[in-house]
Nucleic acid binder design. Structure first.
Lengths: 131, 131
DNA sequence: ATAATATGTTAGATAATCTAACATGCGTTA
DNA sequence: TAACGCATGTTAGATTATCTAACATATTAT
């Protein structure tokens, strides 16, 4: 099991997530309803959140504070996810030479957040990592 | 907030801990009853476990497999905790010269697990750390 | 053979969470 | 200004998860 999988493991009940994020249950469910997070469910239909989910909620909270609405936040986070995928692939060298050239070329014409602070590890992951 | 505090944060319901440890609720409660673990409680009296608690449960499970009984396990874990405290103090240089000399002298006559693999970071903590 | 240990199982109570509906405050727009 | 949409609050009723306590059972130690 690698870090990515660890951060995706469904671990936390909504009660804990409320404390970790200082969001209400209503808010958390509303964000799920609008497809900003995708918590797992127990066999009895209760939500189970991962580290990633909590990170995302903290990010959502911050962006709401900054005046964005849910639609904008969804766009931002989705794009951010795409960038993260790219970075992960690059790190693991899963790209062919051609793909890599395509990405880099594209990066030159439409600079994204690839490599910027935006892509550093999530708030909560840092919170719980060891160093 | 440092690592020690993070690992002590009450985060997991008993249901999650059951899955993480593959222990039954009965077993987990029994070990608490016998003072091997000390999970927190919610305001509604439901148990909340920390990383440390889960680590401890995995250790207990392993030792039971190896034929120890709860009494012996408690002794081992308690002693191990003492050693960890010593190590932590040493790391943070919270010891006077005299205390340090006392520890080292004692170490020579009654070698404990100080510094041995026994004191490496807990199973779960490693499980969830980033590298 | 009996006692102790560790765990299973059950019952009944309580806590936590779920969905769905309606309410509210606050900008935005017609 | 009135109507609307968005984000959130609140409530009700149902369901799931967890709790304690008691009794059952299998294995181990005396």
């Amino acid at each position: 099991m690698n870090d990515k999988e660890r951060r995706m493991m469904p671990l936390f009940s909504i009660g804990i997530v409320m404390k970790l994020t200082e969001l209400t249950a209503r808010q958390i469910r509303y964000y799920e309803e609008h497809k900003l997070i995708f918590p797992e469910r127990t066999s009895g239909n209760q939500r189970l959140f991962s580290f990633n989910d909590v990170d995302r909620l903290l990010e959502i909270k911050k962006l709401l504070d900054n005046g964005l609405n849910l639609t904008g936040i969804k766009l931002l986070l989705d794009e951010s996810d795409v960038e993260k995928e790219k970075l992960a692939k690059i790190r693991k060298s899963e790209l062919t030479e051609k793909e890599l050239r395509t990405i880099l070329k594209n990066e030159l014409s439409h600079p994204s957040k690839l490599g910027k602070t935006n892509l550093r590890q999530g708030e909560l992951a840092r919170f719980f990592s060891k160093h």
